[in-house]
Design a protein around this nucleic acid. Structure first.
Lengths: 148, 148
DNA sequence: ACATTAAGTTAGACACAGCTAACTTGTAAT
DNA sequence: ATTACAAGTTAGCTGTGTCTAACTTAATGT
């Protein structure tokens, strides 16, 4: 064998573009859990006046220690405030994030339903999709969902 | 204080439904990386006749050891076949998975473009979205993208 | 006031996905 | 045939997210 080498005779441009896309997804990934938590916390506070770890665990489908560890991280990142054996609350930053996540979630769900999906599946798919939708796409979703 | 307890007087139904949704997302999550790899490997093979770790690393935006570890896992799971210091190939299972991922990816991209998104952003968003789209939703995307 | 029980915490394990540093292998060019 | 360099591997570190088991705290009911 003599040639075949490099596999990049087309230049590394497309390879790099791709790498950037994957890196962006990994980045989104890191924020997903935080977003899901603050979103849930905001809803629980709206509904019950407080968000207790036990309720978070039930709704996230994980055990109490997992919730505790995650809340520690969120506290470290300044998104939630907590005291031992107490309910969890959102910091201003956390509340802001929750607000935008809820909005985003709502738009995605409404969009999917408008597309023709049943509400249950829409809710399910939205949970996975919402974290990966750019602002431009979200805007398109919103217009489509609201078009008469 | 006397009452306020439980926070679940509405019954645990909605909480459980939610937990299931999150669990589904975590499940999808676990498969994401595997899907991205087999998809990329299939493309490289189609383009160059082989998929080399160095090309995977460049396109995934990670280092060579990370690729090696991931490929080990994929081999363990029966999706790829490899020999030391050689290129990677797909098993029949891996090829099937790659096929369906490529199809899915294409549909999502075309759908987003039809919605009015620029191709570059479509490509970027699709990378994150494609793993979280149910079959029903994918079908709706397909119809929408292909509607005259 | 105290005992019971539910909620929360701590400790420790595992798997995964990323990294750097150092080593080995294989290929290509001289 | 040798050497030099690119590709691949191995070892070992980090941080995250999950778990179980065992412990502590707080609230409820009698």
């Amino acid at each position: 064998m003599t040639e075949i080498r490099t596999n990049d005779e087309n230049g590394p441009r497309p390879a790099e573009a791709r790498a950037e896309r994957f890196q962006a997804v990994r980045e989104a990934h890191r924020n997903e859990l935080a977003e899901d938590y603050v979103e849930l916390i905001a809803e629980l506070i709206a509904q019950f006046g407080e968000a207790r770890p036990v309720d978070l665990a039930a709704r996230m489908g994980v055990t109490a220690p997992t919730v505790a560890k995650t809340l520690d991280r969120l506290a470290r990142e300044g998104l939630v405030a907590r005291a031992p054996y107490r309910s969890v609350f959102l910091t201003p930053d956390g509340a802001r994030l929750a607000e935008s996540c809820l909005r985003r979630h709502e738009i995605v769900v409404r969009f999917l339903i408008r597309l023709g999906l049943d509400p249950e599946t829409a809710e399910k798919d939205a949970e996975g999709i919402e974290h990966h939708v750019s602002d431009r796409t979200l805007e398109l979703f919103r217009s489509f969902a609201e078009c008469s």
